[in-house]
Structure formats: structure tokens, C-alpha cells
């Protein structure tokens, strides 16, 4: 039967329904495109024959192939479109810098030969990033507003966090550098004087950091820090 390969592409995405990006199935897509080329050529030949020799009985077969072409087209566009939705979600979940293993799953090859024009997915990601950034800059009367922050309504400016894995040094706006180290028992507890914006640092024995919420929301989403609700 025709179009089996195309549906296989769709099944592949449907199996992973939580939004992860599977590796780009270049091979499968190429096979579908080859099938489409073959279908088109056969149809063209049959159409010519039906026209020149007046063989109307060929028309049902032409129609079958035409339906298959449309079906292949639908599956391929749906495959690519769903991948774009997943790539867009990555921007919101991971932030603007993607880990290498995730980036690998996008199609980065510029030389990928395709009959339909496909903008490389990495390129699409960076352009989406750019449009989102310029939109966020335009908000708030030129001040800019990060709309990927505060997905849940904030209750306080500062939150307590625990470090789950080594992340290295982390700089806060005023230049204070904190070392985020996995499960370290002696960590800096940073107390903030909000009004005067003076940072009072003290070394304490508590294994938790007290950090401005907007600074660590991204790190929590990435699983580096854990939000401690007391």
C-alpha cells in the first residue's frame, strides 16, 4: 500500500506525545519524497495516455494516485509542522541556549537535498528566538519585559533554592558570584537588603541559597536548582 512510510513518520511523533524532539528522520522523509516522485511520474504518463488515446478507464487509477500524493503531502507537512511546535516549546522550557544533545536532534544540515524548501530547523529556532526577543524588548514602554518569566504568579521577590547539580559560578546583578555546587553543605546564604540594594553576605551552614526569584526561575526549569517551599 502507498503512504505507509509517511504514516510511519507521524506514528514516530505520536509515540512521544510529551513534546520531546526525536531525531530528524531524514531517511524516512526522503523515502516519502521518492514515493511522491514515482506517483507523480506514473500519473503524468497515464494522464497523457488517457488524453491522447482517449482511455477514460484510466481515470480511477489516476485518482487513486492523486489521493496518495495528497496524503503524502499532508503527512510530511504535518510532520514538519509538529516538529516546529516542539522546537518552539524548547525555547520556553530550556531558555535560549539549548543543550548539545537536544540541538543534535534538529536538522542542521544545509545540504539536505529536498524538493520542497525546508528551512533548516536550527535556523528556524534562532529566528524564533530573535523575534521573541525583539517582541519582549518592545514591551513595557521600551524597558523590555521577559515574558518567559513568572509562569506562575510570584509571591515574593526572593525564593529559597537547593542546588541539585554542579553548575559552576553564578553571578547576580550586583556582581556577587555564588558557587553553585551539588549538595554542598557549606554554602553561602545571601541575605538581601532590598531597599538599599546592599547585599549582605554571610557564610552559614544551611545548604540552601536565597536568591532573587527571577534570576533562578530558568535554572529551576532546567533542573539545576530546586525550589524549597518552607
Amino acid at each position: 500500500m502507498f503512504c505507509e512510510k509517511a504514516v510511519e513518520l507521524i506514528r514516530e511523533l505520536h509515540r512521544i506525545s510529551d513534546g520531546q524532539l526525536p531525531a530528524f528522520n531524514e531517511d524516512g522523509l526522503r523515502q516519502v519524497l521518492q514515493e511522491m516522485e514515482a506517483l507523480y511520474d506514473q500519473n503524468q504518463a497515464d494522464v497523457n495516455e488517457a488524453k491522447s488515446e482517449g482511455r477514460a478507464e484510466l481515470i480511477p487509477s489516476i485518482k487513486v494516485r492523486h489521493c496518495c500524493l495528497l496524503r503524502d503531502q499532508r503527512c510530511v507537512t504535518a510532520y514538519l509542522y509538529d516538529r516546529l511546535l516542539r522546537i518552539r516549546a524548547l525555547r520556553w522550557e530550556y531558555g535560549s541556549v539549548l543543550p548539545a544533545n537536544v540541538r543534535f536532534h534538529m536538522c542542521a544540515e544545509e545540504n539536505f537535498r529536498m524538493t520542497i524548501v525546508v528551512l533548516s530547523q536550527l535556523q528556524w529556532f534562532s529566528q524564533y528566538k530573535k523575534s521573541l526577543a525583539s517582541f519582549m524588548r518592545s514591551l513595557g514602554g521600551g524597558e523590555g519585559l521577559d515574558i518567559t518569566q513568572d509562569m506562575k504568579p510570584p509571591k515574593s521577590l526572593y525564593i529559597e533554592v537547593r542546588c541539585l547539580k554542579d553548575h559552576g559560578e553564578f553571578e547576580i546583578d550586583d556582581g556577587t558570584v555564588i558557587l553553585l555546587k551539588k549538595n554542598s553543605q557549606v554554602v553561602l546564604g545571601v541575605a538581601w537588603d532590598i531597599l538599599s540594594c546592599v547585599c549582605v553576605m554571610s557564610v552559614s551552614l544551611c545548604p540552601q541559597h536565597f536568591l532573587p526569584r527571577w534570576k533562578c526561575e530558568q535554572l529551576i526549569r532546567q533542573g539545576v536548582l530546586e525550589h524549597v517551599v518552607s
Binding site: E93, Y94, K152, I159, I220, R221, Q222, G223, H227, V229
Partner: peptide, 16 residues
């Protein structure tokens, strides 16, 4: 009272 707790993205966790 956990609704306001920030959590890691399930996408990120599943990738790991």
C-alpha cells in the same frame, strides 16, 4: 500549598 512552587520542566526531566 504547592501550587506556587516552581518545578523543573517535565520535558527537561524526561530528556535526562
Amino acid at each position: 500549598g504547592q501550587a506556587s512552587q516552581l518545578t523543573a520542566s517535565s520535558l527537561v526531566l524526561n530528556y535526562r
